Structure formats: structure tokens, C-alpha cells
Amino acid sequence: MFTIATWNINSVRLREALVARFLTEEAPDILCLQETKSPVENIPLEGFRALGYRHFVARGQKGYNGVAILSKLPIEDAGDRDYAGLGHARHVAARLENGVTIHNFYVPAGGDIPDREQNIKFGQKLDFLTEMRDVFHADKPARSIMVGDLNIAPREDDVWNHKALLKIVSHTPIEVEHLSATQDAGKWVDITRKDIPEGLLYSWWSYRARDWDAADKGRRLDHIWATPDIANAGHGSRILRPLRGWEQPSDHVPVLASFDL
């Protein structure tokens, strides 16, 4: 069995101590980070290695985006893809010794206006998802786990108020349709919702809220999916809400699941 966690850390260098605390307290076997905001060579690995995370693959760029996979288990670099031709560090893959491939994604947020004619970032988000769909359709993934900040809360109970957010980027019908098409193309199973099928569930709370906990206007933007051939091995999903209350936190919290493989 191994446990995998995904966390948009919003700068791994700024929040190195938070990552170390999380690794110490929760000790997942694999941690996938998004929005590391650092060139790969500047990611602070020494402390993570001291905690047992000696294996590492990443893609990075200065100040923006960035994805990394830290692992106690041996992994090999399984490549990346420049989705939508943006030139961004938004995808990296790693392969475990048992042949399971882990894809770590950071889907573009999409800006504030849900209209590609008025907002180029929204168009880029839709194009990114379309290419993900096409890749999974052309080359059906097997023995694979996909995690990351997908920047979409697909279900009505993945947001604090479905009707209020229908015109807000991350929950608009067109984004949900694109994410659903991506999921269907790879026959991905949403492990979090397989384990926790009912009820409000969030992994992100805005920095803009004066009291995020009391307001509780959250969204489930962070996901763990698996291909059907290993989905039944997934269990024990958790979202660590308390970490949003740590000092100088990310606006996202870790999502975890375990796999018996």
C-alpha cells in the first residue's frame, strides 16, 4: 500500500516549512505539488530528503506555475507535455517500480471572465482541457493515477453555492463539460468522490475572505483520479481542511488517497 497526496503549495520556497511539517505529520509516500513557482534547481530539496523523500521529478519556471513529485518510493521520470502550447510548467509524470504512472497537473485557473473572446486566459484553460481529452482518447491510460489542481469544481456539492457560482470561473457549465469530457476520454475514476460520495467537500478557500473558516465559501479544485484497472485499489480519501488555518498557508489544502497495489 502507498499513500499519495496532492497540494497546490503556492510557492514551495515560501512554504518550505509547511511542506516539511506536513511530511512529518502525515508522511504520505508520494507528494505531488503544484504552483511551486521555482526553477527546478532552486526547489529546497535538502530538508525533504532528510525526511525520507529521496526521489524527485519536477518541471519549473521562475515565479510561476511549476509541478513536482516527491517520493519515498523509487520513481523514474516519465516525461511531460506542454498542453495547449503555453510554454508553462504544468505537467510532469513519474513511474513507480510496479509500473503505475503518476500524472501531476496544474490546469490554468482561467482568469476572472468566463468568456474566451474577452479573456484569453479562459480560452487557454479550455484549450488545455481539450488537449488533455484528446491525449487520453488517443492513448488510453492504464495503471495510472492523475492528481493535481485541476481548477474546476465539477459537482454541485463541490462548491459552497451552486447557483451563485454558475457564472464564476471554476464552476461554469462549459468548464465542467470540458473536465467531464477529459475524465470520460481516459475513463478516469474520481477516487475522492468514490470514497466520499455525498456531501459538501472543499479543498480551496479564497484569501479574500476575512474569516475563511466561518465564511466557508470553498470549492473542490484539487483531485485524485485513477484508471479503472486500479480504481478499486484506491481508498481512504481525505482532505486536510485544518491546514488552511496554518500560519501563512496556501489557499489550497492537501488531498490524499491510499492505493493497495
Rank of each mutant, 00 (worst) to 15 (best):
60 G>F: 12
77 D>N: 14
65 N>P: 09
258 S>L: 12
172 T>R: 06
76 E>N: 10
47 G>C: 00
35 E>M: 08
208 R>P: 09
162 H>T: 14
72 K>L: 03
117 E>T: 11
8 N>E: 06
2 F>W: 09
43 I>R: 00
161 N>G: 07
1 M>G: 14
35 E>N: 09
74 P>G: 02
21 R>I: 11
88 H>Y: 10
59 R>Y: 04
261 L>F: 15
71 S>D: 01
234 G>W: 00
154 P>D: 04
144 S>P: 01
131 E>V: 03
190 D>S: 05
218 G>V: 09
253 V>T: 01
110 G>F: 02
221 L>F: 11
181 A>N: 11
247 E>F: 01
70 L>G: 04
23 L>W: 02
223 H>Q: 13
171 H>V: 07
129 L>N: 01
32 C>G: 06
4 I>C: 06
204 W>L: 13
6 T>D: 04
188 W>N: 07
119 N>P: 03
25 E>Q: 10
105 F>W: 12
144 S>C: 14
50 A>W: 06
11 S>Y: 10
73 L>W: 03
247 E>M: 02
144 S>D: 00
179 L>Y: 08
94 A>R: 01
122 F>T: 04
198 E>H: 15
173 P>R: 03
64 Y>G: 10
31 L>A: 05
219 R>K: 10
156 E>F: 09
9 I>C: 04
140 K>R: 15
215 A>F: 02
102 I>M: 02
229 D>M: 10
200 L>G: 13
75 I>H: 01
256 L>V: 08
